[in-house]
Amino acid sequence: MDTKISGGLVHELPADLAKALVEQNVVSIWEELSAIGRNEFICWVESAKQDKTREKRILRATESLQEGKKRPCCWVGCIHRTDKKPSKWQQDVLIDKKPKALAK
């Protein structure tokens, strides 16, 4: 692969996701996304705790791109961005790891 594929705002493009973008012929769609959009997909893929989950997310990312989606479904956003403050939900659940309060 000689052509450089763009990464995200904060995250670099991982090799396995880059390979899938090429194999699924969605590089041009990827390049049309904003840096923030690419960043969201990359962070979502990289946040997987298991290899199996990561592989599923990579496949789902390429399918989402083919469907015209510009962000991963059901993703609250990258907590690694320094250009914006994390939302209260991100802070409570993703950063501080507090369990959600149960409804009474």
Score class of each variant (00 low, 15 high):
residue 1 M to A: 13
residue 1 M to N: 12
residue 2 D to K: 09
residue 3 T to L: 11
residue 4 K to Q: 12
residue 8 G to N: 00
residue 9 L to V: 00
residue 9 L to E: 12
residue 13 L to H: 09
residue 15 A to K: 14
residue 19 K to T: 14
residue 25 N to R: 11
residue 25 N to L: 05
residue 26 V to M: 00
residue 27 V to E: 11
residue 27 V to C: 10
residue 27 V to W: 05
residue 29 I to P: 07
residue 29 I to K: 15
residue 31 E to W: 07
residue 33 L to F: 12
residue 35 A to Y: 00
residue 36 I to M: 13
residue 38 R to N: 06
residue 38 R to F: 05
residue 39 N to W: 06
residue 39 N to L: 06
residue 40 E to H: 09
residue 40 E to Q: 15
residue 42 I to R: 05
residue 43 C to K: 00
residue 44 W to Y: 06
residue 44 W to L: 00
residue 49 K to M: 04
residue 50 Q to N: 02
residue 51 D to L: 14
residue 51 D to Y: 11
residue 52 K to P: 00
residue 53 T to R: 05
residue 54 R to I: 09
residue 54 R to H: 11
residue 55 E to Q: 08
residue 57 R to K: 07
residue 60 R to I: 14
residue 60 R to C: 07
residue 62 T to E: 05
residue 62 T to S: 07
residue 63 E to T: 10
residue 64 S to G: 14
residue 64 S to P: 05
residue 65 L to V: 11
residue 65 L to D: 12
residue 70 K to G: 06
residue 71 R to D: 08
residue 73 C to W: 12
residue 73 C to Q: 14
residue 74 C to D: 15
residue 74 C to P: 03
residue 74 C to M: 10
residue 76 V to L: 13
residue 77 G to C: 02
residue 77 G to N: 01
residue 80 H to Q: 03
residue 81 R to I: 01
residue 82 T to S: 13
residue 84 K to S: 12
residue 85 K to G: 02
residue 85 K to V: 15
residue 86 P to V: 03
residue 86 P to Y: 08
residue 87 S to W: 03
residue 87 S to L: 04
residue 88 K to T: 14
residue 88 K to F: 13
residue 88 K to Q: 12
residue 88 K to M: 09
residue 89 W to S: 14
residue 89 W to N: 05
residue 90 Q to A: 01
residue 90 Q to I: 01
residue 90 Q to K: 03
residue 91 Q to L: 12
residue 91 Q to T: 15
residue 92 D to M: 14
residue 93 V to C: 06
residue 93 V to L: 07
residue 93 V to H: 11
residue 98 K to G: 02
residue 98 K to R: 09
residue 99 P to E: 11
residue 100 K to I: 13
residue 101 A to L: 07
residue 104 K to P: 14
residue 104 K to H: 07
